[in-house]
Write a protein that binds this DNA or RNA. Sequence first.
DNA 1: GCCGATTTGTCCGTATGTATC
DNA 2: CGATACATACGGACAAATCGG
Lengths: 241, 241
Amino acid sequence: MPKEKYAEIYKDLKRKIETEEYAFQELLPSENNLILTYDCSRNTIRRAVSALVADGYVQTMQGKGVRNIFQPTLRTSFTIGGIESFKESAIRNNQIPKTEVLCFTEITTDPKISNKTGFPVGSELYYLQRLHYLDDKALIINHNYFLKNVVTNLTKEIAENSIYEYFENILHIAIVTSKRIMTVEKMTEIDEKYLDLGDYNCLAVVSSQTYNSDGIMFEYTQSRHHPEYFRFQDNATRRTI
Amino acid sequence: MPKEKYAEIYKDLKRKIETEEYAFQELLPSENNLILTYDCSRNTIRRAVSALVADGYVQTMQGKGVRNIFQPTLRTSFTIGGIESFKESAIRNNQIPKTEVLCFTEITTDPKISNKTGFPVGSELYYLQRLHYLDDKALIINHNYFLKNVVTNLTKEIAENSIYEYFENILHIAIVTSKRIMTVEKMTEIDEKYLDLGDYNCLAVVSSQTYNSDGIMFEYTQSRHHPEYFRFQDNATRRTI
DNA sequence: GCCGATTTGTCCGTATGTATC
DNA sequence: CGATACATACGGACAAATCGG
């Protein structure tokens, strides 16, 4: 539960936008009015509004105001945005997740793996292949590489449940930054064997590097998604810089 | 040319990171030191650093410092990030762009188009199909829908060059927000006809809504990319909110 | 384990600039 | 032109996390 003022204001404004208390295309109250409403400083208001801009909810216009550009009808049901685990994402969409561990090994980073993952040569890693189901349909194959001296004592049983829960609740690893690259690739034999791709001969592939709170990259994952169930959302704002 | 202090500091720090004046995994100077270096307030430093965090260049750690997590070796040559036109992107990568206009018409938004694009029913639109080449290879088919009363007097000739240049230099339309959704779709007859897809039977599809500085959505575009040349980069940071 | 120094995070108030109406 | 709105910048205060002695 956030107790920061700007987070509370952000949540409240977000709710008012989502429930259409502020109508689409309407201007939000001015900063000075919001200062009175929430009894805080201007900086705090501006910070909350900045977060809404980043979400694509509003747009600021110097000299005019802050416009609501949130369109509820265009919201998607299966969003992969921000950093979210497969299980979190499934539960949020009321779907039943299941995970099957196809492979669980320990490896040492050689130059080829280093080049692919970004781990230094010689790093000790866990390497896993996992198959993710949603409502009994196989949708994603994950190839996970975890740094052993950060992700300590990983087991097959943990990998069958949620590795991210293990991170947060047991190891207390906070995930801070994730760098992702999305591409489309031809299916491999493994993809074809485990995913029911039908006519499709390619997949959506998300490669990601994940950093913990010490700024150490401790995970490299390649997620190979069934193309029919893949959707990636993004809001871009032109930087003034 | 930005004259804002925070933008100058951002640019300078970014350069120092890219040229490895600050080494990978090294801590940047503390905020108090940066204040002395750049002769400014703490807020200004914090703003510049925040932009670097958003870029995935650094990671802040309370009580410890700001760590450089930029890995130059992993930089990609063909990046589609932020809001960038096909031509801008091509030039940045030293490739020769060419655009062919396959179709140039004017339409009125019916319920079906409204549902697909997000324009209100009855809106007057330009509808274009354009084929984009890079170094003589057909890579992207764009389906553009532009609001006629914003994108005034569009012609086929303009569409063959750069529509974004026409926006900025002639119409003075500033692009502020862009909402994008990335999916993978099976190829259509049009895709097959114009793109040399080889064995691939699907494409990367980016659907985007673009807003001007008045908060008006004036463009809906579906970009259909040759899968071999598509790459989408993203940095996510866990929100404290 | 404690304490003090350092570092980032949150919050406030104020002043000035710039764009819009 | 004045009033209003957001944008930039400064300075100060305290909190929270980290680290070394």
